[in-house]
């Protein structure tokens, strides 16, 4: 399968000021991530809040330039591609449908915006295609002249999906597309995404912290921790036999529907490490219950394993 978009060792650091006179410090939101997205797959990127998922998504969309490394779109460095060219191939669906639609434009205009920017057809043709796309995502044509304020959260997310798909991009990057929605609407949106992915053959990058959702939709999963990919594998392999202790903890933390079981004890401790001063060696070692000699000194690298890659000293043992 051809690789549509690829990150080569990308990092992104932000200067964080702490008051007027304190020296600025660098926060490495994403740190040396190499991932390839192949045609037709659904790659899920999971990890807890602050692990760099959204920063990675912004770099894949070309909205944020990497501070090191490169994003390759169709084999070409994104920096040498025009914004319009990237837009034709990669489109986003954001987390919060209440802030991703311009409240002062009509639904049809919002969906037709990419067509307008790319000068596709005359305005009547654009409108027809926008309405067609709205119907495809399950919204009636009579909502076309409405404003976003008149729509529910689920409907708004459908509009955002229609806008992302109207130019028929190769890849759609969904950054937590369901986490701002009611539980009852979440499954509708997920099913819609899966249906559209099958019908249109669009490749999806699906960013989430919800493992139940990921298990439902993904064909391949990458687990991030403090800006690094710690494990990457086919969905079945990852959910069946997680290798990295962090992945194991994540899977164990996914709540089961049985109320008697309560919240599982992961032995992780409550502390999320400070991303401004990440621990030496393996970033996960202070929370890992299986650490041994090299963990606090040597940083593990991603190594191949059955159906994927894992960055853990245990894997080599």
């Amino acid at each position: 399968m051809t690789i549509l978009i690829e990150t080569r060792d990308v990092s992104r650091a932000f200067a964080v000021g702490r008051g007027l006179f304190a020296k600025k410090r660098m926060l490495h939101a994403v740190n040396g991530v190499s991932l390839a997205v192949r045609e037709g797959e659904v790659l899920a990127i999971v990890g807890e809040s602050g692990c760099g998922k959204s920063t990675l998504a912004k770099m894949l969309l070309g909205l944020l330039a990497p501070s090191a490394g490169a994003v390759l779109i169709g084999g070409t460095d994104a920096r040498s591609l025009a914004r319009v060219e990237i837009a034709r191939r990669v489109q986003p669906v954001f987390q919060d449908p209440y802030s991703s639609l311009n409240p002062r434009r009509r639904i049809a205009d919002i969906v037709a915006l990419p067509l307008e920017v790319h000068r596709v057809g005359a305005s009547g043709e654009r409108r027809r295609r926008a309405v067609e796309m709205l119907e495809r995502v399950g919204l009636p044509a009579r909502l076309a002249p409405a404003y976003p304020g008149q729509l529910s959260g689920g409907q708004r997310q459908r509009v955002a999906i229609a806008r992302a798909l109207v130019m028929q991009p190769e890849i759609v990057i969904c950054d937590e597309p369901t986490s701002a929605l009611d539980v009852s609407v979440q499954s509708q949106i997920l099913n819609l995404l899966m249906d559209l992915q099958r019908e249109l053959g669009t490749t999806l990058v699906f960013i989430s912290h919800n493992l139940a959702v990921v298990e439902h939709i993904a064909t391949r999963v990458a687990v991030m921790y403090l800006g690094r990919v710690v494990e990457e594998a086919e969905a079945g392999a990852l959910f069946g036999a997680p290798q990295h202790p962090y992945t194991q903890a994540l899977l164990a933390s996914a709540l089961t529907p049985e109320p008697g079981l309560g919240v599982p004890d992961l032995g992780l401790g409550p502390a999320f490490p400070d991303p401004l001063s990440p621990p030496a060696g393996c970033a996960f070692h202070p929370r890992c219950n299986r650490r041994f000699a090299p963990c606090d000194a040597v940083e593990p690298v991603l190594q191949p394993r059955a159906g994927g890659r894992v960055a853990c000293h245990l894997a080599g043992v």
Partner: peptide, 14 residues
């Protein structure tokens, strides 16, 4: 900083 500005940028708007 709202997402609709990011969406317009991602759509390639000038």
């Amino acid at each position: 900083h709202l997402d609709y500005v990011a969406a317009a940028r991602a759509a390639g708007a000038s």
